[in-house]
Simulated scan of single mutants.
Amino acid sequence: MSTNGEPDAPRTGPDWRSRLSVVLLSAASGMGINVLSNDVGYRGVAAATAAGAILSAAASLRRLPPRASLVRHTARTLLALALLAAIAAAVGPAAWAAYTTLTAAALTIAAVLTTNTTDTAINLLMGAAGIGLGVAFIGGGITVLVRDTGLTTQLRQRVAALTRDPAGEESTAENSGRVGTPSGT
């Protein structure tokens, strides 16, 4: 009984997402202090912890009403962070590219998992798939352009002609930028 005389609502147990997040977080903690951390390193611990945290947050957000401001803004915030990670992958140092790309993908997956409606989740997945296919086609197009085709051969010949000095010597690393000077001086 509650304090105002009304019966309490029956308690419900945690759903499967909550149980799975507890299992993943427990496994991540165990891996952090166990022998497995030597095998997979801290990256495996971080991945398991992130997966557990995402599933736990998704389970908590699904309990809220769909019109709650936290539910409405979570997907947008996660997608904005995924955009920042994708930009960092494109313009940041090459050493960061793999990590920031995986971070962008994980944030997009988290946005899909935290939505309340199936339609929104499908729209997000289709949009992410379209972007992924577009990036793949761009990469394929660049590969085709870089191949040794007639166009690239002509471009290489023109660049080589522009980098020759008046004496006819080609620029090298030793005399680059010094047109007309012999390579030995």
Rank of each mutant, 00 (worst) to 15 (best):
D8E: 14
A75M: 02
A161R: 03
A89I: 09
G177M: 00
A121W: 10
T49S: 04
R63C: 14
Y42C: 03
E6L: 08
V91C: 04
P65K: 07
L133E: 02
V22Y: 04
I131T: 15
R67W: 11
E174M: 04
D148K: 01
R72M: 11
A110P: 11
V146K: 01
G140Y: 10
G168P: 06
A75E: 06
A88E: 08
E6P: 08
A28Q: 08
E174F: 03
I138R: 01
V23H: 09
D15C: 11
T49V: 05
D119E: 13
G132M: 02
T118D: 14
N116G: 15
A173N: 06
D15T: 09
A173C: 07
T108F: 02
V23E: 10
G141E: 09
T172E: 10
P166M: 00
T149Y: 10
S183N: 02
P10N: 06
L102K: 01
D119L: 11
A104V: 12
T49K: 07
G141M: 01
E170I: 13
R76N: 07
A68D: 14
G168F: 09
T100S: 05
D119H: 05
A86T: 06
A51S: 12
T103Q: 01
A97S: 12
A105D: 03
P166T: 07
A53P: 04
I87G: 01
R17N: 06
T163N: 11
G132Q: 05
I33Y: 09
N38K: 10
A80D: 01
T181P: 08
T149M: 08
R147V: 04
G150I: 01
A85V: 12
A68C: 00
L151F: 08
L145V: 13
I54C: 00
R17V: 11
Y99H: 14
G141W: 02
L70Q: 15
T117V: 13
I131N: 07
A167W: 09
V112N: 05
I138D: 12
M126F: 08
L83D: 03
M1E: 13
T117S: 15
S183Q: 02
A51Y: 04
S21M: 12
S21C: 13
A110Y: 11
A136M: 03
L20N: 02
P93L: 07
M126E: 15
L81N: 01
V40C: 08
R147A: 13
Q157P: 02
G168Q: 07
S21Y: 01
S26Y: 04
R158A: 15
V159P: 05
N4V: 15
L84C: 01
R72I: 12
N123F: 10
V135D: 11
S69K: 13
A82G: 07
L162H: 00
D148S: 00
I142L: 10
S69R: 10
V112Q: 05
L162Q: 01
F137A: 12
V35I: 10
A9R: 06
D15R: 09
S18E: 15
T153N: 14
D165Y: 01
T108K: 06
A27Q: 05
A85K: 11
Q157T: 15
G130D: 11
E6Y: 03
E170G: 06
T149S: 05
A50R: 02
G44F: 00
M31H: 00
G180M: 02
T143C: 04
A59T: 10
N4S: 15
R158L: 14
G177T: 00
L83P: 07
A50Q: 02
T114W: 11
L83I: 07
